[in-house]
């Protein structure tokens, strides 16, 4: 299995990559912005497992070049993992359009413009799986992070359409609705410890879901229940809450 990972420096992506080696992954292209951080992840994978690892410079914002970047990959991947994401600062996004733009592009626009050419190639070949890190924050907008949340919501809708389109051609799309995970993204927050998962667990969950061909998974699973509760609060009440 040849695997492309976008945003490979994310600890969840690293865990997914490690778990995919147990499912037969033999070659990786790790894509991202920081050569030093990518090299660290590449060295780790190569030292742990008997796999081939390359890195590639990739920026989600750089939409003009996404198609040619995909065309330049050494192979059409059997599996794609999308971990790119930017939580950003909600406060700043409310006044700074450039920041809002960055959040939207990194979580949504950039994923669309990268996955389209990839989907086309995988569709033409007639197999493959695409696993994308969505977020429970995209299931209901809240004042504390709705710019990020809405980008993820757009992403979920996009993936649902893409899954629908690719199904007939044997290409699977897995949407991971991820809860709180202990990563750099959440390092600044004081989250309830019992609800924060380890990247390893979430990565293993995503790898398994991709191999099984699951469509939408909550990671960890108990977030299905939490989000069912949160989604069932009527909007008239919800708008009054400080969330």
């Amino acid at each position: 299995m040849k695997v492309l990972i976008l945003g490979a420096t994310s600890p969840i992506a690293v865990a997914t990559a490690r778990a995919l080696t147990a499912e037969g992954a033999s070659a990786f292209v790790l894509a991202g912005r920081s050569p030093d951080k990518l090299k660290r992840v590449a060295d780790d994978l190569a030292a742990r497992f008997d796999v081939e690892v390359d890195t590639s410079h990739y920026d989600a914002v750089d939409w003009q070049n996404h198609a040619s970047w995909v065309a330049d990959l050494p192979w059409v991947p059997d599996a794609v993992v999308v971990a790119t994401g930017l939580l950003g600062e909600q406060d700043q996004a409310q006044t700074d359009a450039e920041h809002a733009q960055a959040i939207l592009t990194c979580n949504f626009n950039g994923v669309v413009t990268t996955l389209e050419p990839l989907a086309q190639a995988m569709q033409a070949r007639g197999s493959g799986v695409i696993g994308v890190m969505g977020s429970v924050a995209g299931l209901r907008g809240r004042q504390s992070n709705y710019v990020y949340g809405s980008a993820k919501a757009g992403l979920h809708a996009y993936l649902s359409g893409l899954r629908n389109r690719l199904f007939a051609d044997g290409v699977h799309v897995t949407t991971a609705l991820i809860g709180w995970v202990r990563t750099p993204m959440t390092a600044e927050f004081d989250l309830p410890a019992a609800l924060v998962s380890e990247p390893a667990k979430v990565g293993q969950g995503l790898a398994k879901a991709m191999v099984r061909g699951n469509s939408v998974v909550y990671l960890p699973g108990y977030w299905r229940l939490i989000m069912w509760v949160i989604r069932s609060i009527p909007e008239t009440l919800f708008k009054r809450l400080k969330l």
Partner: peptide
């Protein structure tokens, strides 16, 4: 706990 990467493993010489 985030510093958990392997950097190199030489399985001929046994250095890690």
């Amino acid at each position: 706990r985030q510093l958990d990467a392997l950097i190199a493993f030489d399985s001929k010489a046994g250095t890690l």
